[in-house]
Design a protein around this nucleic acid. Structure first.
Length: 691
RNA sequence: GGGCCCAUAGCUCAGUCGGUUAGAGCGGCCGGCUCAUAACCGGCUGGUCCCAGGUUCGAGCCCUGGUGGGCCUACCA
């Protein structure tokens, strides 16, 4: 039996899990469940990644300690992943004794080899924040092209890169404070010394290597090695929420040093709880044979650098088991775009769970995920169509029509497999035989496609022999035909089970199986005379209405998360100017300007105009009006449709080149591409006076 | 600037070693059926295989150069 240790990337504990995290969790979970169904001994080790500056900043913003933040987020993450039925063995934390010990052990091993160098580094330090500022926490004016408000590492205007210390007028993103240059000692790992090992680890199978990587990933990493490996700075100065480096008081491991060690810490904790020895997993030779461990990491393409260079090198240097496989996936996009908080496509895991069954997303993701690292587009209409077509119309329908018919009209007893049904069943079993290797190679898309083909051809067979007609003359023949449907439903359930565990369990009950489905026992025929259990609904139709609700709820939930703790922030430094206040006036002045509530009922771009949108406004009893507004660089027309806005309603109509404008929509902002329209509570009544 | 990856029907994807007229599912349109969750069946619809060259008797597939998208990285090939 192969020992397999699988991990999904540790979830960063500075906020709730979103569907991007869920994609990886599901891909990993499907793999783990499938390998268990192959008979492998698999443990799924997982944890929260709890250290580093972003955690400190988030905690500070909320006015709590980092420990409180990570404890709360931990619960949220566990709830989210449990909700998606992720079958991890342990979800641990990098803020643990186990992690401190293994980090220290790996560090000591590196030090004994002479793989730790100490050098002075000059960095920006903020007196107000009392900390060294990472590159991304500094903004200032680009030293090359003088564009203001650029990040600490590169300029988005001229594209040049630089050190944060080169910025003109640098300031802390956290407090707005002007940081000063300060020197401190940092610890470095000279990665170049590990080049020989890394080249060996990266060797493709055709050349005798054993590590499984996607070709694109391997090329990618080899390219870095070829360019020359740079020293890796593994230390950060206090205050830093993390693990203090043994022998270097006031210095902490950079979060990316201790994060992957969390895989080991989780394993040790799990082993302690289950009477096992973690050394059997992390001190065994890497490999797929007896007495060896196969370590499989599932990660997103953003962290290949850490998992395919530093991590194997560290493990090897410290004599731990190195990964056998790193499986890389792309980003989750929603409706063809990066997840957007404004459009409601930034969907939190827990928001999803409040609105729909995790089975839908599990199926849809698995049905489209394969071994590549392309980005994954979750298109809502395709989601609905695919789930209904495959899961409901094909797979569930086959089981439903077969089992229900047998139960209601033939006493619920299976017959023999008829001669004309045997080839179909044999073909389906041949397909099943391909499935383990497909799952083993993360090609769940193809595995599920095979399941749908099985269901489809069996469905055609039943249609052809129309048991509902035959039953009158030859009930036993009808029974035999439907028996094929049940036999194939068992095979389909086996393929679906890693993706839809509950589906598998329902079929196990309906078919009165005495052992849970595996790929091996799924191929065994169901015995003639078997008495079926009651039919259980396998999948219900998905409607796009539910998804619309999900999108709406996501907007609110994301806003709520961002608002958490936003208030305790002391008056922040402002990096923009506003016009001075006008002279004081009496309240009578307000009477001159008649502001009204208006609902946007029409909105379109004005051809040939650079900035104009033409709005049709409904002012309730006051009727409709046409108003031009110079906001097209900030709004797409459809964004405004249906919104309630404030309109300067007694403004003298003005003839413009493109038509008559009968009012003025209130908006804020100084530059053309950053205008925001005043949106009113949708409960307000069109035409009502604003005062 | 350099590197890597991706591109086939409206959508999701197959397409073997280079071999006939490039396929499937979904969608759309028309008709039929009903055991089954508006399921199911038949028919129709749908393609500049990203573009341009090249190799070949023959290219979706191989080679070169481009375009678009994604990612990484930086005076180094």
């Amino acid at each position: 039996m192969t020992k397999v240790l699988v991990t999904a990337a540790l979830t960063y504990a500075n906020g709730p899990a979103h569907l991007g995290h869920v994609l990886e969790a599901i891909q990993t979970d499907v793999y783990v469940r499938a390998r268990r169904m192959m008979g492998d001994e698999v443990i799924f080790m997982w944890a929260d990644d709890t250290h580093g500056t972003p955690i400190q900043i988030r905690a500070r913003r909320e006015g709590i300690e980092p420990e409180q933040l990570i404890a709360r987020v931990y619960k949220e993450h566990v709830a989210a992943y449990d909700g998606f039925q992720i079958g991890y063995d342990i979800f641990y934390t990098t803020h643990s004794d186990e992690n401190r010990r293994h980090a220290a052990a790996i560090f000591e091993a590196l030090r004994e080899r002479g793989d730790i160098e100490v050098r002075d580094v000059e960095q920006l330090y903020s007196e107000v924040d009392q900390m060294f500022l990472p590159d991304r926490m500094v903004q200032g004016t680009c030293p090359v092209c003088k564009t203001p408000d650029q990040d600490g590492d590169s300029c988005e205007n001229c594209g040049s890169t630089y050190r944060p210390t080169e910025l003109i007028e640098p300031r802390s993103v956290i407090s707005g404070d002007t940081p000063v240059l300060r020197s401190s000692e940092h610890l470095f790992v000279p990665l170049a010394r590990h080049e020989a090992f890394l080249r060996e680890w990266l060797t493709p199978a055709e050349q005798g290597g054993t590590t499984i990587l996607q070709d694109s990933v391997r090329n990618f990493v080899l390219d870095w090695v070829d360019k020359g490996l740079r020293d890796w700075d593994i230390s950060r100065e206090a205050p830093y929420f993390g693990i203090e480096i043994p022998g270097f008081p006031g210095k902490y491991f950079y979060v990316w040093f201790d994060a992957p060690i969390g895989y080991i810490a989780a394993t040790e904790k799990w082993c302690a709880d289950h009477g096992q020895d973690w050394r059997d997993w992390w001190k065994a030779p890497a490999g797929r044979g007896e007495g060896e461990t196969e370590i499989v990491h599932v990660i997103g393409k953003d962290i290949v650098y850490f998992h395919c260079l530093f991590w194997p090198a560290m493990l090897n240097a410290a004599n731990y088991t190195v990964p056998s496989r790193v499986q890389v996936h792309g980003w989750l996009k929603v409706n063809g775009e990066k997840m957007s908080k404004r459009r409601g496509t930034f969907i939190l895991a827990n928001t999803y769970l409040e609105h729909l069954d995790p089975a839908y997303l599990r199926y849809y993701l698995a049905a489209r995920l394969s071994c590549n690292q392309d980005d994954f587009d979750l298109a809502m209409d395709d989601f609905v169509a695919r789930v209904n077509a495959d899961l409901v119309n094909k797979a569930a329908n086959l089981a439903s029509r077969s089992i229900k018919f047998l139960n209601s009209r033939l006493g619920g007893t299976l017959g023999p497999v008829p001669e004309d049904g045997a080839p179909l069943l044999a073909a389906a079993r041949e397909k099943l035989a391909e499935v383990p290797d497909l799952y083993r190679n993360f090609d769940s898309a193809k595995a599920l496609r095979l399941a749908m083909e099985m269901a489809e051809s069996c469905d055609a067979y039943i249609n052809e022999h129309a048991p509902w007609k035959i039953i009158k003359q030859d009930p036993e023949r009808a029974r035999a035909v439907l028996t094929v449907g049940v036999q194939v439903s068992k095979l389909v359930a086996a393929v679906l089970k890693p993706v839809l565990p509950q589906w598998g369990e329902k079929v196990e009950r309906m078919l009165e199986l005495d052992a849970p489905l595996t790929f091996a026992n799924a191929a065994e025929p169901l015995p003639e005379g078997l008495e079926l259990g009651a039919y259980e609904t396998l999948a219900e139709r998905l409607t796009s209405k539910v998804l619309d609700q999900l999108i709406e709820a996501s907007k609110e939930d994301v806003a709520a998360d961002q608002a958490v703790g936003a208030k305790p922030e002391p008056a922040p430094a402002h990096d923009y100017e506003v016009p001075p206040l006008a002279d004081e006036v009496s309240i009578d002045a307000l009477d001159q300007v008649d502001l009204r509530v208006a609902k946007v009922v029409g909105c379109e771009r004005v051809p040939k105009a650079k900035k104009l949108l033409q709005l049709t406004l409904d002012l309730g009893p006051l009727g409709q009006r046409s108003v031009f507004s110079g906001i097209s660089q900030s709004y797409e027309p459809e964004q405004l449709l249906g919104k309630h806005v404030a309109v300067f309603a007694n403004l003298k109509p003005r003839k413009m080149r493109f038509g008559l404008s009968e009012g003025m929509v209130m908006a804020a902002g100084q530059s053309d591409d950053a205008v925001t329209v005043l949106e009113l509570d949708p409960r307000s009544l069109p035409g009502d006076k604003i005062s």
